[in-house]
Design a protein around this nucleic acid. Structure first.
Lengths: 124, 124
DNA sequence: ATAAGTGTATTAAGAGAGTTAATACACTCT
DNA sequence: AGAGTGTATTAACTCTCTTAATACACTTAT
């Protein structure tokens, strides 16, 4: 299900989180389908089950998975994480923007950049 | 010139940077005036000169100081750091904003928040 | 020229946080 | 009861970051 990159010097659990996030966001994992057990994936990646658990915990906190103790971990519906992600980004954006204002950036500068960014983002 | 807070668990050089930044930004240190030597301030704070040097280096990179080897470090004019600070914030802002777009935030949402933030910021 | 003052470079020691593993526990289903 | 699941606790390990020790290089004044 996942392949580790040993040249990548980030911690293992972080790689696992990132790859699973992408799989889930990309729709490759069906909602409510069962994830491999922490032990199974631990064997698969030649890594301690706790490492997988740590990844699952983070994914759960972010709304990508939900867990039923004794049964397993499952893919959460998109509604669970999409809103959380927006909220988190909005909070971060507000902080940075406040900092930018204090550094002397004008509203007009940011408006213009906003236009640019959303212009580039249009794929049509 | 500076007092260390030993309950603060951040590294010493970071505390020094922060306090000197504030002094300079607040206009307490005259432009082109000479800073204490790394050794003098090292003695003053009971710390290795290298620690002070590290702080000075960072302050120099951010435009708060300029250094003449063999002569000393000096307070840079405001024009040096104000621009650098803006540039840095702008870069950060762009990155976060791009992330926010990808998370699904609309341009309109951000425009509205921008208005709010600059509204709050008006002190009149 | 020499001495005292300055910043700089290199290296190593030390501390600390973060990651991973070992192991035992608790829950669910058949 | 047994096999499968997640969970909690603890400890070892690793690695980065901070700080210090020390030697070097430049500037100025005597």
């Amino acid at each position: 299900m996942i392949l580790l990159d040993y040249r990548d010097k980030r911690p293992i659990y972080e790689q696992v989180v990132e790859k699973l996030e992408k799989l889930i966001m990309g729709g490759a994992l069906e909602t409510d389908s069962k994830m491999p057990s922490v032990r199974a994936m631990g064997v698969d990646l030649a890594v301690n089950p706790n490492t997988i658990q740590r990844a699952y915990n983070q994914l759960e906190k972010e709304g990508y998975l939900y867990t039923i103790s004794g049964r397993g971990s499952f893919v959460a519906p998109e509604s669970e994480w999409r809103e959380g992600k927006k909220k988190k980004m909005l909070e971060e954006w507000r902080l940075v923007t406040e900092g930018a204002r204090e550094a002397g950036l004008t509203k007009e500068q940011m408006m213009e950049l906003l236009e640019q960014i959303y212009e580039e983002g249009r794929h049509d």
